[in-house]
Simulated scan of single mutants.
Amino acid sequence: MEALVGELEALKIRRRAFSLTRRTDAQMPMAAPVRGAKSGPPVRRRKAEGAPPAPSLPKRSERDQQELELKSLLAEVGPRRSALTSRLGGISEAALLARFRAAGLEREFALRERDLIRALYSRHRWREALVAEDLALPMARLRAVISERGLSAELDRLLDRIRREERGQKWPRQRIAQVLYRRDQLRELGLLEELEGEVAARTRVLWTKVRARPQPLDELRKALQLTTSDAVKLRELLDLR
């Protein structure tokens, strides 16, 4: 290194050489081609390649397409036979079930239909007329579907539970409210005659005690913890005189 510096000093270009080596790229002189010099071989530039085309999806089979359509329809309207047959052009129930079977959805439809029937019987507290109306099915057809789906014994157990709950209502207000305002439901449960007889017997015992008093209806109302309107309805129902 010292020999190099000495040589640069002798040539009186040391400072010039040092200044050149300390410059930035921006300060360095731009390279220029030498005239007459042969150029190298031409450079072949690669063309910019775009993204590869997306692979085409395999075409669905007719069965897969039918399965997709039925699943979508089932999610929209639920396992309601009347609504499904209507949406599919008014086909018969047999044709509807055949379509679900062909698409491999027979089991799914059956399970969902069972769940729906259970839920409706529980919601309507076993009032079959309301369940049939909700499903838009005639009563006879509803019972046939229940038998077909193997729900008869399960719904009978539900009926027994609801009957126990209705029989367990407290006297006097809850029991009298049942007989006054839920007669149709009690009739469908097969309890109307039983519970109305209980209310009539217990009320008439009280009525015989207060009938001779100045305001017998008010006395009866207080004894049974009723509103005036309910006391009037009860008197009319039982024909108390």
Rank of each mutant, 00 (worst) to 15 (best):
D134L: 00
L8C: 05
R87S: 15
Q65T: 05
R63P: 04
S82H: 11
A54Y: 06
R99F: 09
S19G: 11
R107G: 02
E133L: 07
R81I: 15
L97Y: 14
Y121C: 00
R16H: 15
L142I: 03
P138G: 01
L88N: 14
R80S: 08
S92H: 10
R15N: 12
E108S: 00
T85M: 11
R107H: 03
R87V: 15
V34Y: 05
R45S: 05
D134F: 01
V34W: 06
L68G: 11
R46E: 14
P42Q: 09
T24N: 06
V34T: 10
P33I: 07
L116V: 00
M28P: 06
L68C: 10
S82N: 09
E113Q: 06
R63Q: 10
R16V: 15
L142T: 04
R14Q: 10
G36V: 09
R46D: 13
E49Q: 02
G40D: 10
L57Y: 01
F109K: 04
W126A: 06
R114I: 04
I13S: 06
R114V: 03
S19L: 12
G90Y: 10
G78F: 05
Q27A: 07
L137Q: 02
A26E: 14
R80Q: 11
L8T: 03
P53T: 02
R44V: 15
M28K: 13
P53K: 01
E93D: 14
L84Q: 11
G104F: 00
A98T: 13
R114K: 09
R107N: 02
F18P: 02
A32S: 08
R123D: 02
L84R: 11
L137T: 03
E49I: 01
S56D: 10
R63Y: 11
A110I: 07
D115A: 00
E93A: 13
G50F: 06
G40S: 12
L135G: 04
P33Y: 08
M139R: 07
L116I: 01
V43R: 08
R80L: 07
I13Q: 04
T85R: 11
R101T: 12
E106D: 05
E128S: 03
S61Q: 06
I91S: 07
D25A: 14
I91R: 05
M28C: 11
R112W: 04
A129M: 01
P58K: 04
R80N: 12
A129C: 01
E106C: 02
S122M: 01
R81H: 14
E49N: 00
S56L: 10
E108I: 00
G78N: 07
R14L: 14
K71P: 13
A103Q: 05
I91D: 04
W126T: 05
A26R: 14
R45F: 12
A94S: 11
R23G: 05
R114F: 03
A31C: 07
A98N: 08
L105H: 03
S39H: 12
E128V: 02
S19A: 14
S92I: 12
A54I: 08
P55K: 11
I91M: 06
L97V: 12
A140D: 00
R22K: 09
